[in-house]
Nucleic acid binder design. Sequence first.
DNA 1: CATATTCATAACCGAAGAGTTATTGAATTA
DNA 2: TAATTCAATAACTCTTCGGTTATGAATATG
Lengths: 107, 107
Amino acid sequence: MSEAQDLLFTALADPTRRAIFERLCRRSEQTVGALTAEAGVSQPAVSKHLGVLKRAGLVSDRPQGRQTHYSARLEALSPLVDWTQQMSGFWESRFDDLEDLLKRMDQ
Amino acid sequence: MSEAQDLLFTALADPTRRAIFERLCRRSEQTVGALTAEAGVSQPAVSKHLGVLKRAGLVSDRPQGRQTHYSARLEALSPLVDWTQQMSGFWESRFDDLEDLLKRMDQ
DNA sequence: CATATTCATAACCGAAGAGTTATTGAATTA
DNA sequence: TAATTCAATAACTCTTCGGTTATGAATATG
C-alpha cells in the first residue's frame, strides 16, 4: 500500500543497485566515478541507479564541483525492519491450533 | 550475489505479490480461490504470484483434492533480516571521522 | 581561452514481467 | 456418467526496466 515502502522494496530488488548501496554502506561517501569503477555497468547506468536509490531515500548526494558524492542513509531501511517485524507479529499472534481446529470442523 | 537472496528481494518487490504474502501471514492456510477473492487480479495471476513466492521459499503448498492450500513460511524472511543487520554492521564499523579526514587530506 | 573531466539526461533497444483470456486436467457433485 | 468446480499452464499483449551510446552543462586545468 504505502508508496514509500513500495519505492524501498523496488529499489532493493535489482542486484546491481543493491550492490551499489552495499558499497555505500561499507565505505562512506563515494563519487559516481568511484562507484562506476566497480559496478560493472556504464556511468549513466550507475547514475540512473543512484537516482532510484535517492528517490527511495536510501542515499543522499552532495554535489561538490564537477563531482557528486553519494552516501548511504541507513535510516531508510527502518520501514523494511518494521515490515518484517509486523509480519512476524501477525504470524505469532495467530491462534493456529484453534484456527486449524475450527477449519477442520467446518469441512 | 546470493541467488536465494536475489529470489527473496525480487519476490517481495511486487505490491500485489507482497499483499498475498501478507494475507498469508495474517491468516494461516488459504486456498487459491480465497486469495484470488481479495487479490484484485485474476486467478491465473494469483497462481503465478504464488509460484514466485514458492520458488523464493516464502510459501509452501498443500494440495488437497482439487484445491491447494498455501501458507507463509516466515523463516524465509531471515536472509532479509541478516542482510539488514549486515548493512548496519558495515555502517557502524566504519571509522567515519578518520576516513573523512584522510579523504580530505588526499584531495 | 581552449581542452579535458565529471556527471546527468535524452533517446533508444531488448528482455523481463505482470496482467489478460483460453484451455486442460483432476476432483467433486448431481 | 455427466456436469461443475478448482487450480495450473499456455499463449499472448503491453508496459516497465536495465542496459547502451550520444550529448550537454558545469567545473577544473593547461
